[in-house]
Design a protein around this nucleic acid. Structure first.
Lengths: 390, 390
DNA sequence: GGCTTTTGTTCACGGCTAGAGCATAAACTG
DNA sequence: CAGTTTATGCTCTAGCCGTGAACAAAAGCC
């Protein structure tokens, strides 16, 4: 999001600004609103919109509601406009969706898998190739969310599935590079946080903290609408700090990791059940519903860890997604009981709110979409689009 | 650093870019270099430099070295150019400096104080007023570094000095607001990190971690050259996460804070000496020099905590300032012994380097300067300057 | 049906940067 | 020492961009 420095770049920069405003607003805002919000002259907006419409990037339709005055148009995604393919790969299944500018996601396929890299990624690669053939140049990128740290280049580790340095782009084996380049592979927590920042409770928040609970716990700081992804792309791993206090060895190689005390695995362990290997989602849900000591222990661990992170980073809001929503709903009292005393005194008068994500389990998928459009909604991305249509 | 959107803003934006390049380069780069680095046409650079020189923002001098071809000029700070007043307020003394564009800091005064808010800030306020009178409109801002969390508006807590919500701007009681507005009050760790990002080892680093050790421990993440300051300005408090494992109550109100195991206070405590109240800097230094168990314990605690933060944030480099430089020098073995095992396995092949700051104890002062110039090197700041000279 | 309100379109204008051509000032060459 | 080479600075024109005002359009209101 850096600025133009020459008068030639100004046009490209403003095209991007306008299209991003359309996307961020869910493709529901009228041209008059956009003109005002971006501080453009009406004439400028006229030229920009005409250009974007000609490039099949948007399409104007009469606004459904009028008050007085000349009716305005809403900027909608163009029927031949760009598509983002987004995938959420969980431990037991994946979900594939096609997304239009504005953020509408059409789920195309949900398929269970056996937990092996090949078993999960082979069929997914075929499905992606099929969609890319079908939609041709409209596909501007592929985003894939995965439940583990992702190093630059797409090497993924999912400790409790036994994935070690799995080369996701290679296993997906996409035939021709889509216009947007190689698939964007990312951590599910980071993507969920991105979605939360764009379309959830972290929207407009300068510093927020997002925690995603599933079998494990992931967490990431969101600054100015951007999750911090670290130097190698593996920066959403708050679960692997020794905030729990215990000395139990973690599958990640360190000891005492916070994540071991919070997720589905922790619930199963506390209830005396078998855990690990990405199995037992339903059982964990039952343990959670039953309440009692396992839930209280997880909620307390969550609260204590959140307090530590709030001390360190001073976020404005803390959001929880995945299983965290349910832990918060069922164990709020225990969570707050550990949260308060863990805070520095100066943070206690106005502690940041801890809230369930507005996006539920769709966060990772929507975040994968956003990351594709983030790469597309740049002067370079729009240039590529223009060329691919010529 | 957001961009221009109208052709009118382009000029202002490029003035800022040029002047910032001069400042960041230490006012040693030649006009030809600047032109190339910023990707400007020679004609554009000509106009911009002429404008900045006329506004007394910079001053061209012949370059000392030539190769071949027409000799170029170096852009130096103008003799009547903007000045930043920067202060580092420690527990036992403060230091005041006047800084030119480019980063040269002339120390004006170092004065011990008694540790009370009034005793420390009263004389400092007078010194600042005196300098503001002397230099008139040249003073574009005042930056003050303090050894505790600083909330927006300048309310400061220094737990072990007994400072509670001390209103620093009010106690400084600057007569007329300087052109730059109210003094910029900030945490010493955050300022040290800022300096490190601009003129130290974190320069050009996308994600870095800076830890400042004094009596306590402060730490902050540096992303794209900017320390993350939190929603209320109090985001440099990594020392108040329970990474140590102990349950000892901390002066901050929480328990088990990491900072209690690392700084000068920890060294004194481990050696069986009295600690707290901002006293005992020399004794702590002697404990450190003596080596042995107190040093080893502090170094191990530091290493273990760094590993946790590296796991969570995936920084490229970790830098240490203040007493951390000495702990690293004398206790590197113990530190690394705890650092490695605390890392996730995937981080162990290429763990981030842990390095002593290049700026030593001057970091906080230089960071205070940078924060003043950050506010000045904006289109608005340069406009104010223009008006104040008219 | 005329008036008001709001929005879209068109166009002249001023401002900005790029780039080319020319001037300048040194170091190098023989 | 004079001509050549190289790098830089200056000046001017062309092309592009956004602004803002005037005008047209399309509704709701009385």
């Amino acid at each position: 999001m850096n600025g133009a420095t020459t008068s030639g770049e100004l046009r490209a920069h403003n095209r991007v600004r306008l299209l991003r405003a359309v996307h961020d607003g869910g493709a529901t805002r009228t041209r008059a609103q956009l003109t005002r919000d971006l501080g453009l002259a009406r004439g400028t907006a006229s030229v920009l919109v005409a250009g974007l419409a000609e490039d099949a990037l948007l399409h104007e339709e009469p606004a459904p509601e009028h008050t007085r005055g000349r009716p305005t148009q809403v900027a909608r995604p163009h029927p031949d406009g760009p598509l983002a393919l987004a995938v959420d790969v969980r431990e037991d299944a994946w979900e594939l969706a096609a997304c239009e500018l504005g953020g509408d996601a059409h789920v195309l396929e949900v398929r269970p898998h056996d937990g092996t890299p090949r078993g999960a990624l082979g069929p997914l690669g075929e499905a992606l190739a099929e969609q890319t053939r079908r939609h041709g140049h409209r596909v501007v990128g592929v985003g894939v969310a995965l439940a583990g740290p992702v190093r630059l280049g797409g090497l993924v580790d999912v400790a409790h599935l036994g994935w070690r340095s799995v080369d996701v782009p290679r296993l997906l084996d996409l035939p021709a590079p889509v216009p947007g380049g190689a698939p964007i592979v990312g951590n599910d927590t980071a993507f969920a946080a991105l979605a939360e920042a764009r379309r959830g409770l972290l929207r407009g928040v300068r510093v927020g903290l997002h925690l995603h609970v599933d079998f494990d716990l992931g967490g990431v700081l969101v600054v100015d609408g951007r999750p911090l992804d670290g130097a190698n792309g593996t920066g959403a791993e708050f679960g692997h700090m020794p905030l729990g206090g215990g000395g139990r060895p973690c599958a990640c190689g360190a000891t005492g990791c916070w994540g071991m005390d919070v997720g589905a695995n922790a619930l199963l362990r506390q209830a005396g059940l078998a855990y690990g290997g990405g199995q037992g989602r339903e059982q964990a849900a039952r343990v959670l519903e039953a309440g009692g000591p396992p839930l209280a222990a997880a909620a307390r661990a969550l609260g204590r860890g959140i307090a530590a992170l709030v001390n360190a980073h001073d976020p404005e809001v803390v959001t929880l997604s995945g299983l965290g929503v349910d832990v918060l709903a069922a164990g709020r009292a225990a969570l707050l009981e550990a949260y308060g005393p863990g805070l520095m005194a100066i943070r206690r008068d106005r502690p940041p709110r801890v809230e369930p994500s507005a996006l539920g389990w769709r966060g990772a998928l929507l975040g994968a979409m956003e990351s594709v459009f983030d790469a597309f909604l740049t002067p370079e991305g729009l240039d590529r689009w223009r060329l691919s249509r010529a």
